[in-house]
Amino acid sequence: MQVEVLSCMRHPNLVLLLGACPEYGCLVYEYMANGNLEERLFQRGGTPPLSWQHRFRIATEVATGLNFLHQTKPEPLVHRDLKPANILLDNNLVSKISDVGLARLVPPAVADDVTQYRMTSAAGTFCYIDPEYQQTGMLGVKSDVYSLGVVFLQLLTGKKAMGLTHYISDSIEKGALSEMLDPVVEDWPVEETLCFAKLAIQCAELRRKDRPDLGKDVLPQLNKLREFADESLGIRPFGGSANPSPNHSNASMSHGTINSISQTSLTKPKEYLPAETDPD
């Protein structure tokens, strides 16, 4: 078996592709010590649960890597199969997107904010595929935004993807989001978690025109959530320590935890809650 060394795009949130063997259809990636996000969310092999701080950070890293793909020139690159199994974690639990083998380069003629391209058949994984893409074959950067929303919902719940959008939307309307959150995390911060859940629901809207823009709308909200997570651990924006508490969960407890709040506080949005997206 002969492995060809490949040159590829470099980004801290994309797995480094080292080579490929066309004969056997084999790809060679950099070693990622902590496996993939799916294994960690379901604690396979007895791995410890991910804290809410790690989940907020992973969400931001994945969105950042995806946005990089969408901004490639001269053609945006659409992943088409984003899911927890294709998000790998290194030794420090830094997340990187892998398996862009299904991605397609979108022709420059339609490379704009509403970029879409007609494919002859839908590709991807059930529950993560953009419903519009599946029905019409029209591929666009917001097809990945739908998949990203489903991944966000799994970060919140630690559950399988089937039906999550409906269940989370229903729980928010009833003021019962706490019942859907992953129980292995006991100190979910109230307002920030609600904000993240609503953002996830927006990303997973059935109609593409109702989904927010990844770079303009989604990433600014995620960056604020990541900053909040870092602050709870005593991490300053550019490194260093801010005298973190021996028990980092105390930082989030000051904002109230999901398990001990009233319905009123759960339904009150934070000031940086993303605005509703106007129909195109």
Results as ranks from 00 to 15, higher is better:
residue 1 M to R: 01
residue 1 M to V: 11
residue 13 N to W: 06
residue 13 N to K: 03
residue 18 L to P: 07
residue 19 G to K: 03
residue 25 G to K: 02
residue 26 C to Y: 04
residue 29 Y to K: 11
residue 32 M to Q: 09
residue 38 E to I: 06
residue 47 T to Y: 00
residue 52 W to N: 02
residue 57 R to P: 05
residue 58 I to K: 07
residue 59 A to S: 06
residue 67 N to A: 14
residue 71 Q to C: 14
residue 74 P to T: 13
residue 75 E to Q: 13
residue 81 D to S: 13
residue 81 D to G: 13
residue 82 L to W: 02
residue 82 L to H: 06
residue 87 I to P: 03
residue 88 L to G: 01
residue 89 L to F: 02
residue 89 L to Q: 10
residue 92 N to C: 12
residue 99 D to W: 07
residue 101 G to Q: 06
residue 102 L to D: 05
residue 105 L to P: 03
residue 107 P to R: 00
residue 116 Q to P: 05
residue 116 Q to R: 08
residue 117 Y to W: 09
residue 119 M to G: 03
residue 123 A to I: 11
residue 123 A to P: 01
residue 124 G to R: 00
residue 124 G to K: 02
residue 124 G to Q: 05
residue 125 T to Q: 01
residue 125 T to I: 07
residue 132 E to G: 09
residue 134 Q to L: 13
residue 138 M to T: 01
residue 140 G to C: 06
residue 145 V to Q: 05
residue 150 V to Y: 04
residue 150 V to H: 09
residue 151 V to D: 15
residue 152 F to A: 09
residue 157 T to C: 10
residue 163 G to H: 03
residue 170 D to R: 13
residue 171 S to R: 06
residue 175 G to Y: 08
residue 177 L to P: 03
residue 178 S to P: 04
residue 180 M to K: 11
residue 182 D to C: 03
residue 183 P to Y: 04
residue 185 V to C: 12
residue 185 V to H: 00
residue 186 E to Y: 01
residue 187 D to Y: 01
residue 198 K to E: 15
residue 200 A to F: 13
residue 200 A to M: 10
residue 201 I to W: 10
residue 204 A to C: 01
residue 206 L to Y: 11
residue 212 P to S: 05
residue 216 K to H: 14
residue 216 K to Q: 08
residue 219 L to M: 12
residue 219 L to Y: 02
residue 222 L to F: 08
residue 223 N to H: 08
residue 224 K to T: 09
residue 226 R to N: 14
residue 228 F to Y: 09
residue 232 S to R: 05
residue 236 R to F: 11
residue 238 F to Y: 07
residue 239 G to A: 09
residue 240 G to I: 03
residue 241 S to Y: 14
residue 241 S to G: 14
residue 244 P to G: 05
residue 245 S to D: 11
residue 253 M to E: 13
residue 257 T to I: 07
residue 257 T to A: 06
residue 262 S to H: 09
residue 264 T to D: 14
residue 272 Y to R: 04
residue 273 L to N: 12
residue 277 T to R: 10
residue 279 P to F: 04
